[in-house]
Design a protein around this nucleic acid. Structure first.
Lengths: 304, 304
DNA sequence: CGCCTGGTGAAAGTAAGTTTCACCCGTGGC
DNA sequence: GCCACGGGTGAAACTTACTTTCACCAGGCG
């Protein structure tokens, strides 16, 4: 027997609180006391037990339940979780970060962390957005069919080059990385048709890398450039150009955003190559994972 | 009372879910089943009763309670409302990317790129959210005042260690990185009070790194661990623990997300240290930037 | 005055959450 | 190979939270 008018609040999309305050006047005195508590601090109410809330509203648990039904809930637990959800939603996202912004001199560490993370995440996202899948596809194709892959990079980009080399190696592709220009040049001279040379340079102006890539191209290898600047010198010696999208304000954040963007691109290429031959790649990965197993200590459990 | 090591989750600022996935490997099998259910659909879990959830996880209510305690909650009701809040906060991204999900076999490169970028960006953001500024501050403090800083890391984490070393070096701090265990051990043995040793290990189980960190600690150095798993063995030998929040499904994405997360943390520490002495750091950075200038080719202009 | 009616809380009842405890199973010492 | 040990587990006992029932008390009305 529907004694209650059934206010249809069974699923209020965005405003349980609003809904409650709307029907506040139609509630009985005791229920109103409950309603006011709930509306004034939903988060706190969500944390309370029914007895607690009843006491705070100077009424009985029974009334609280009646209140729940009056506003369209099944019972107290449901009200509780809806309240928690509602309260959480209201907390404004702390969106005031400036993209690519510098870090203010007086900033505390929490601010620094937020700013860095925001910019880093941004760089990754934006890089992915502007990456041309068609070009990636061709690069993946070239790598997959390559007899040998040489990867060049200096300084910070050297880490990325090295990382890429290691990744490709792990799935059984023959890849090299040279930290030193002379060795790199020597290697490039030995490349030929069907081989691939990849040059990584954030600015696109690192002469060492350009030089080596040029050499590789002369020998008939497919050349790939990974840089942040689509019109930089390195693109002149590359058959394919992949770009990152880090808006780095010079050095302040340790140039990490550009590194992350580069790594993301490398990862995409890697997964693309691995996906070309799932079975083989997986097998290779498992084998390598197993190899380091003996260097891991017992389970990842509670301390003794 | 305090049987549990108290993982401080009592108030995770932005990421209960993240927190849980971090602890996942340190949980017992039955608890892991519960954790997986919760992580995969927090909103649904919040709606369930404890008995319901226990049944779904094919375990007993007792285990669910144990799980609640393991992740730092008081009991099931608290978990429930926190879950509801968490679920509400994340305005679901329009795309149906599976977080931490595998890449479907038939995926084209565009999909692969989107998925990878999404997960990578996510790892960075979530890592920042759960980073404890207070701990960072202490680590920054230690690094700033250190006579010498040793950084250890094996395999993939080695790149990060190396990157960190380079960064600190660039702002004039005396930092070392050792790719080889023996050298690292030797170095650790020479550390003393006032020095800092930093160990990086994604899984937190790399015995080489743990061993070296332990040695450093014995010698009186301040030890810092950077890992994805707050209860892994490496945390036993660290004075300060910093965690990343990459929910990597093993190898598929080349473990890049965890790398990015680590780099982000490193970057935060770096900027923190640099901020302590702006003038000096800036000067050092400018000097080093100038040093590589001669290896850059002409302006970043259009091709000739 | 007596009957109805809506609002209320006490108390009874049910379901949810929590604790206890015995069992199992793998580990490591003897 | 045996046995003690300790962690992981679920059944059952237990406690607390939630829900229902019901009797009571106003106030309104015939």
């Amino acid at each position: 027997m529907a004694k209650s008018p059934k206010i249809s609040a069974s699923q209020e999309p965005g405003g349980l609180i609003v809904h409650i305050s709307g029907l506040l006047p139609s509630l009985s005195p005791a229920e109103q006391r409950v309603a006011r508590l709930v509306v004034s601090d939903p988060a706190a109410a969500a944390r309370r037990t029914i007895t607690d809330l009843a006491t705070a509203a100077e009424t009985s648990e029974a009334t609280v339940i009646r209140f729940c039904r009056s506003v369209g809930m099944d019972g107290y637990p449901q009200l509780r979780i809806r309240l928690a959800a509602e309260a959480a939603r209201r907390i404004e996202p702390p969106d005031a970060r400036v993209v690519g912004g510098d870090i203010p001199p007086g900033a505390d560490l929490a601010q620094i962390i937020a700013t860095i993370a925001f910019n880093d995440a941004r760089a990754v996202e934006e890089t992915a957005e502007q990456l041309d899948p068609a070009v990636c596809e061709q690069v993946v194709e070239a790598i997959s069919g390559a007899g040998r892959i040489d990867i060049y990079g200096a300084g910070a980009s050297g880490f990325v080059a090295s990382d890429f080399q290691q990744k490709l190696h792990r799935i059984g592709r023959i890849a090299f990385y040279f930290p030193d220009v002379h060795t790199a040049l020597t290697s490039a001279a030995l490349l030929g048709r069907g081989d691939v040379a990849i040059g990584i340079s954030h600015t696109g102006t690192t002469s060492d890398v350009i030089e080596v890539l040029e050499q590789a191209r002369t020998r008939g290898a497919v050349t790939v450039a990974l840089t942040n600047f689509p019109r930089s010198p390195i693109t002149d010696v590359a058959d394919f150009v992949l770009t990152t999208a880090a808006r780095e304000t010079t050095y302040r954040s340790g140039a990490t955003a550009s590194r992350l963007a580069q790594l993301t691109v490398v990862d995409c290429l890697f997964v693309g190559v691995a996906a070309r031959n799932r079975a083989r790649a997986r097998k290779a990965l498992e084998a390598t994972a197993e190899a380091v197993q003996s260097h891991r200590v017992g389970a990842n459990r509670r301390r003794a």
